[in-house]
Nucleic acid binder design. Structure first.
Lengths: 153, 153
DNA sequence: CGAAATTAGTTGAGTGTTCAACTACTGCGC
DNA sequence: GCGCAGTAGTTGAACACTCAACTAATTTCG
């Protein structure tokens, strides 16, 4: 390997560590709150949200995986649990016999509706309230750039 | 509950989702790269980093937990694995008989030294390269504010 | 058409994380 | 100095995630 590592300078070092600390703390906190108040991890909550916004509250497994940021395997396992809880049902896809459609049940919708206010309050308290309007705009731009770049990686 | 939920407006909604997508993708990517190239998850890497920077490459379990952003339980489990791998050793604390001191072995240090360049390259590629200098400065400020707020939560 | 490559989704084993319960020790308050 | 609240760390069980291997259906294209 002839290429020298481009190490992080002290400023970058601090930025990276601050980001790591903040995003980990934020996610851990929201996850803990959701687990405590709604008995589900944040990943499951997000699956329910995506389903609730889909037409007919139905989504193909692969689209659901994509939109909720899960791997297919993770989603399979998760939906199995959500189905056992009665919040989601699987249906066969009429146009592709390999396909499965996840369908948010009324129970699942009710569960989500009950969990949402507390969770949104948490997002507000831990993310938006501490930042001013300019920082929020910056954060959005930064996140979009990073997400875009990572999508094609 | 008489207080109405302060829902997220469309802008906040998009900001929150972009942040979620970006930070998840970033962490997942770095975790996968580290697992592939060094055979360890990011959480373990960070434990080794903190130990490597401590005087004598030694740290009390609780300080290590604090500085690496782990719960005590998580750290106990993690150090058990790192010890099995021969990268860390536990020692009794001379001043407090409840205490344990984690000590980075030479093997552990070598392992870390081997893993670091690739990981730093990944952080650069996925985080710093896509952002301009101003955005990096903003991200640092934002992260510091959030981390500070979450610490006292 | 028909074989090969691709895509959809699941599964199980292995690993990591959480939570609550537990032991052992320390240090405060009296 | 004694009792008791708090601190340090570990443990096991339940749960979640990853990876690779797998089945089955579909698409591609010679």
């Amino acid at each position: 390997m002839l290429v020298m590592t481009r190490w992080l300078d002290p400023d970058e070092q601090r930025t990276w560590r601050a980001f790591l600390t903040a995003s980990r703390a934020l996610m851990d906190t929201l996850d803990r709150e959701l687990q405590r108040d709604a008995g589900m991890p944040h990943a499951y909550y997000e699956i329910l949200v995506r389903l609730s916004e889909a037409p007919g509250r139905r989504l193909r497994m692969s689209e659901l995986a994509e939109s909720s940021g899960s791997s297919r395997s993770r989603l399979s396992h998760a939906v199995a649990r959500l189905e056992a809880a009665g919040w989601v049902r699987r249906e066969d896809c009429p146009t592709d016999r390999r396909g499965q459609i996840a369908h948010l049940t009324d129970d699942g919708f009710a569960k989500l509706a009950a969990a949402a206010p507390g969770h949104v309050e948490g997002v507000r308290r831990h993310l938006f309230d501490p930042l001013d309007a300019d920082q929020v705009a910056q954060l959005r731009r930064i996140s979009e750039v990073l997400a875009e770049r990572l999508r094609s990686a």
